Each structure stands twice: as C-alpha cells, then as structure tokens.
Simulated scan of single mutants.
Amino acid sequence: MNVLVLYNYSDKQETLEKDYSEEAVKECAFSVRKALECFNHQVIMFTLMDTTDSLKSMIELLAKGNIDIIFNLCEGFGWDSTMEHNIAGIFELLNIKFTGSGSFTLASCLNKGRTKEVLTFYGIRTPNFQTLFSPHNKIKKELTLPLIIKPLMEDASVGIRNNSVIYEASEIEKMVSLFFERYKKSALVEEYIDGREFNVAVMGNSELEVLPVSEIDFSGLPKEMNRICTYESKWDYESIAFRRTPPVCPAKIDSGLEEEIKEVAIKTYRAMECSDYARVDMRLSNDGKLYVLEANPNPDLSTDAGFSNIAKASGMSYETLILKILEIALMRYKSKQ
C-alpha cells in the first residue's frame, strides 16, 4: 500500500516556544515511516513548508492519484496551529483517505472554548471558563480563584508557563495584560483544578478501545512550582519541569476510578466526534470530581511521547501502534462504502 507520511515544518523562527515541539513532529514522521516500512508498506514522505509553492506541490502530489492513504501528522501550516484543520480540509476536498480526525473535529478541539461548550452541552464536567479576545475584557465574577490563563487556540502546551496560575484577584489584570503582550492572541481563562492529572488514549470508531490510564506525577516538583503541564514540562528535556513530572502508566488508581475515567474519556471522544485515535486529558480534584481539560485528536506519536508510552504499557510495540492506527482508518473508510 502506498502511504504518504505528511508533516509540517518551518525554518522561520517567528513565534515563541515552537522550536522543541515542531522538531518533535519531524522526528515523529521518520519514526512513523520506519514503522510502516516494517510491514512492507511503500512510504512517501512529504514535508509541508509554510510557502505557497510547498502547498501547491502537496496538492499536485495528491492529485496524481497514486496515494492510497495519508498518515496525517500535520499540526498546522508553518508555525500556525490554527491552520491544522485546513490541511485536513484539503484531503477531504480531494476525497483522499487520511488517518485521524477530520477538519471539523480538529478545528473544534483546537479551540479550547468551543471544546468546553460542547462538553458542557453533553453534560461532561469541565472547569468554569471565559474566553478573552482583548486585554480589556473583564473577568466574570462567577469564576473562582485560582485561575489559569492559556492561549485559546494552541497545542503542545504552548503558552502555559509556571506563572500561568493566578491566585490573587489583584493579579488578574496584570497577568491578562502580560499574556496579550507576549502572545498577541485570544486567551482562555478557567478555574484551576488542584489535584491529579490523567491522560487517556482512546482508539477506534464504531467500537472504541481505551488504553491504560496514565497519570502525570507532580510529586517531584519543587514547592514553588505549580502542578501543571507547562511547555517546559513537555518539551524542554533539560528542565526541572520535564525531569520531575514523569508519567506513571498504568496509573495507581482503584478499579472504580479507572472505570469512571474511561467512561468520561469515551463520552468526550464521542462528543468531540474524534476518529481513529485521540487523547483526553482530565483532572481529579481534591474533592474527587473529574474535570475534562481538553481532547487532543492529533496527539504526538513520537516513540517517546505519551500516547506511544501508553500503548507500550498496554502491550503494543511502537510499530504495532502505528500499523493499528492505519488499519483503523482504513476500516473507517471501508465502512462508509
């Protein structure tokens, strides 16, 4: 089978905090290629750069009609993650098969405010929130401190820093102003849920498989650091935040909590209309309530990434995981015929 492994890249350093995570996409693409070649698939690599010529070249390649399916690793166009769904939209317009969720789901999940609106509609608990489109927007009085501020439309924990948690009302205006000054984009402010954090990998379409629950262990962080997944904790391998927040999989939880977490993950996956595979992140508050933070329909599939480590804990090799994603996508298209 002819498989196109497609990923985005840019040699322009125009935005903050993108160097680590975008390099990971490139490494991931070559790992996926190697895994697929283990099963005798014919793999073509394409790097989508942030130029019109590169975009035209991609469309010309797809229009030739010799690609059976795209293994989609694109997380944007250049550094712009808000363009992620548009790339999938091109595949849909050309009627070409691809792995992972469609453009509608990618767009909905990237917009954290929209995600939370959907979750709320379906009765899935998520922290109370507010979207800010300007530094002059006032925070609603209904929101209870502490709060956390993050970009409304970003992935890979970009824009989440140790000082993103706001504990005092007197600090809100300053922190909002600093956020807009630094990132120049809309923000999401939500109630900060102190407690444990879980990552749940879900695979499938008509039938779903929930892999072992993974937990981020914050116990090794210094007292002055907030118990959150910052950009550093995900991508800066030399940082204290990264070295002191190891994942524990399977998580040390009782069977009752495990069942509840998996049920919430499935409900979230269905509510956000995810396809093939996705990761759901949630928090367990100190009073025992689960809150969904977000759904990631295009999670990092690097060999050492969270999704791959969860699959490994379930007994899957990396190669088997990649093949399974491909086969699930092919089954999805076959069921539509």
Rank of each mutant, 00 (worst) to 15 (best):
S57G: 05
D300K: 05
N137H: 13
T99R: 04
S239V: 02
R114L: 12
M153P: 01
K184G: 05
P246D: 15
T126Q: 07
Y122I: 00
S134R: 04
N296H: 04
E232C: 03
K324N: 03
I261Y: 09
I139L: 07
L326F: 06
L208I: 05
E197Y: 11
W79N: 12
A88V: 06
A63W: 02
T51W: 09
A201L: 14
A201H: 08
L147E: 09
G100A: 04
M153T: 10
D68Q: 13
K138A: 08
V213M: 12
V213A: 06
S317T: 15
V200F: 11
E173P: 00
S177P: 04
P247Q: 14
P246C: 14
D287P: 03
C38W: 03
L61I: 03
G159F: 05
F30Q: 14
G288I: 04
K64T: 11
F133L: 11
F307N: 07
L208P: 03
K262G: 02
S214H: 00
E207T: 13
A29Q: 05
D68L: 08
K141V: 13
P212C: 03
M225S: 03
Y7R: 04
V248E: 12
P299Q: 01
G100S: 01
Y7K: 03
V158W: 00
A35L: 10
A311N: 06
A311V: 05
F77K: 05
S214V: 00
A251W: 01
L61K: 07
I253Q: 13
T15N: 09
A107F: 02
E258W: 02
I253C: 11
N298G: 08
K234H: 07
V3K: 02
D155A: 14
D281T: 07
L119A: 05
T320G: 07
M49H: 04
A271I: 01
R244T: 06
T120W: 01
V189F: 11
V264W: 10
R33C: 15
C274E: 06
N199K: 07
E60K: 06
V32D: 10
I266N: 03
R161V: 06
M203I: 02
K18Y: 11
E37N: 12
L257W: 05
I261W: 12
L208Y: 05
S10G: 11
V25W: 00
K312H: 13
K141H: 10
F71D: 06
F39Y: 15
K141I: 08
E215Q: 12
T51N: 12
N2L: 02
S219W: 08
N226A: 15
A241H: 10
M316F: 14
K252E: 14
E60F: 01
S275P: 00
M83N: 12
N226P: 09
K223R: 11
T52S: 12
Y333N: 05
S219L: 07
K64I: 07
K18D: 13
E22N: 13
S21Q: 11
T131P: 00
M1K: 13
A329H: 02
F39E: 11
E92Y: 04
